[in-house]
Simulated assay, not measured.
Amino acid sequence: MTPERPSARGSAEVLRYTAFSTDPAGGNPAGVVLDAGTMTADEMLATAADVGWSETAFLVPRGDSRVAVRYFSPRAEVSFCGHATIASAVAHAERSGPGHLLYETAAGPVEVATSRADDGSWQATLTSVPPRTVALDAGDRRDLLAALRWSEDDLDPALPARVAYAGAWHPVLAAATRERLADLDYDMEALGALMRERDWTTVALVWREDATTFHARNPFPPGGVVEDPATGAAAAALGGHLREQGLLTLPARLTVLQGADMGRPSRLTVDVPADPGSGIRVTGTAVALPPPR
């Protein structure tokens, strides 16, 4: 697909892509600036606010396939964003060809590989920083459930709650039923305040359909977004969490289905190596979106 003409704020070309879908009506939209070398942090934040999606990626090429990257939501900078990584890598590949890049992010180095399928679609695979998890404090668990308007009975006891990291922190809660996951009606102010206090990027809400298939939803009130249609960083964190808790037969390939409940279906492929210290690989497609009217 030929990329659409970008929009701009000042001298910065702002491309618009959707990640984890081959359909412009699906996936998670992201802004992309492929050369942000002259931009200040304030300009990046203002651009992300103009774009209005959950994140915009700002790339500064360093040479030798190294790229410094910063991610901004409409309200704040975030340490790492998976869907904007996939979107920006595909945007780069459409202009420079497939290959490997090393993204230098606030969370650490993230390897990204791009390729083109026989049908012409582009995909990218990111390898996260080493994941880890910590316990979800009992008080935080209580406050989190209250903000979500969930109860302990809504949780799947086979998938313990943790706070998981693979570039950004996400509490992971597993719903006992698909119906509970579909019925998302949370207190945005209360949840946003708790997440800002704890430095959580999104809340990863999941339902396990089978051993390797998960449905997910990700509230993101600190970024000014009610929900993410696809969250690569949370998918990587989920893979690390499941590996650490011994809940997978390793190595494993997971499918994370997200966005269907908000009308933007997304598919994320998550490869979980057996090595406990290794990063999690997240793969998805991306396509260009038309410029705003």
Rank of each mutant, 00 (worst) to 15 (best):
R293G: 03
V272M: 07
G223M: 09
D143Y: 08
T249A: 15
N218M: 02
S73W: 01
G97D: 11
T285I: 00
P130G: 13
A216F: 00
D35M: 10
F20H: 01
A49T: 08
G10V: 12
R70I: 00
P273S: 11
V78T: 07
D140T: 14
G284C: 00
T22D: 14
S65L: 14
Y103N: 09
A117S: 13
W200M: 05
V287D: 01
P290N: 11
Y17K: 08
C81M: 12
G192N: 13
G108F: 00
H100A: 13
P290M: 04
P171A: 15
A182I: 13
S121R: 11
S21W: 03
A190W: 06
H215Y: 09
R9W: 15
A76V: 08
D119I: 12
P229S: 14
L205W: 01
A41Y: 09
T40Q: 08
R9P: 05
A216N: 00
A164E: 04
F20V: 01
S21D: 05
V51S: 04
P131E: 15
S54G: 07
L191H: 04
A89C: 14
P98K: 07
R116Y: 04
P276Y: 12
R162A: 03
L173C: 13
A91Q: 09
D199H: 14
T105K: 05
R70K: 14
G26Y: 06
P109D: 15
A146Q: 13
P98N: 05
A204T: 07
A236G: 04
L15F: 11
R267F: 01
D228R: 07
A234Y: 02
G97T: 14
S21F: 03
A147M: 07
P222N: 05
S21Y: 09
A234L: 09
A260Y: 05
T269W: 07
R253M: 10
S121P: 00
L155G: 06
H83T: 01
T105D: 10
A124D: 06
T231E: 12
P131V: 12
A174H: 11
T18N: 01
R9C: 14
P276R: 10
R132S: 12
P290Q: 09
M39T: 06
V90N: 07
H215F: 10
L34I: 03
P219E: 10
D210H: 10
A260L: 09
N28A: 08
R62E: 15
E227H: 01
D154Y: 05
I86A: 00
P265C: 11
D140W: 09
G26E: 12
L15S: 13
V287G: 00
P292S: 10
E244V: 02
V256P: 00
A138N: 09
